[in-house]
């Protein structure tokens, strides 16, 4: 599997490493995907890198690659963001993978081996949901709102109504809320705020977890929040050019 830029892998690693230390990557002809739970089983993260994300991709037999994020991060730090990455996994020797970074400009090539782990991964069946509300907005704006409000209080409430979407945090000494209304005068789709809902709803989530979830803003200019009463929120970042997505499910806080 050859990616045109290592930056994609670096961003994916950044988006999951606070939640997950080791995870199985499933490789098949459609691409590479992973699903993992954080140790507290509060957040589920799913990553899909489709064949379209790669400059070239071939997977003759489905394989599971057990990756330890820490050494993987060390290896990836050796790659320039605009260097090509080739990942090679051999079906005859499933003990390790090879990573080759190529810098075409400097005619430099570097090669690494990463030992694979035997991970007893837990998989969760996520049912298809009929969401009560969906909000799409610029991922940078969502990130700023979450980062700012997480400083105010550890509970982040998201309310959707005719007024728009309201994000609220309450701390011991202060309380803050931010309201976003659907944008009408913005041309660029990536800058638009779109809100749809069937019934008004209000749900509360742990702000520190939500902060971790906003790391994926580096992977996509937009984010979609899908909510339903008394259900985990789904926060989805779609990568450009059908390259894939990263999705997080975060369980709510309740009385």
């Amino acid at each position: 599997a050859r990616l045109p830029r290592s930056a994609v892998l670096k961003k994916i690693l950044d988006s999951v490493k606070d939640l997950v230390k080791e995870t199985n990557w499933d490789c098949n002809e459609e691409g590479m995907s992973m699903q993992a739970l954080d140790t507290g089983r509060i957040v589920l993260v799913e990553v899909m890198l489709r064949e379209a994300a790669f400059e070239s991709y071939a997977c003759e037999v489905p394989m599971t690659l057990g990756i330890d994020m820490e050494p993987f991060g060390k290896v990836l730090r050796c790659a320039g963001g605009d260097e090509k990455v080739t990942i090679k996994a051999s079906r005859n020797d499933q003990d390790h993978i090879e990573l080759v970074f190529e810098n075409e400009e400097k005619e430099r090539m570097s090669a690494f081996e990463l030992k694979l782990m035997d991970i007893d991964g837990e998989h969760m069946a996520v049912p298809d949901a009929e969401w009560g509300a969906e909000i799409s907005m610029p991922s940078s704006e969502f990130k700023k709102i979450v980062m700012d409000l997480a400083e105010i209080g550890s509970d982040l409430t998201i309310a959707v109504s005719k007024l728009g979407v309201t994000f609220t945090a309450q701390g011991n000494n202060c309380k803050g809320s931010m309201v976003l209304q659907p944008s009408t005068a913005v041309d660029k789709k990536s800058e638009q705020v779109a809100i749809s809902f069937t019934e008004p709803l209000e749900m509360t989530f742990a702000a520190p977890y939500m902060k971790m979830i906003t790391k994926a803003a580096a992977l996509s200019s937009t984010v979609t929040l899908s909510l339903d009463e008394a259900c985990p929120i789904c926060v989805r970042y779609e990568m450009e050019d059908n390259a894939g997505h990263i999705k997080y499910y975060l369980a709510p806080k309740e009385d």
Binding site: R41, L44, H123, C231, Y249, A251
Partner: peptide
């Protein structure tokens, strides 16, 4: 205060 629920109460582990 509010209690944090776990995902296992919503999704099935397989």
């Amino acid at each position: 205060g509010l209690a944090q629920r776990g995902l296992s109460t919503f999704f099935r582990l397989i």
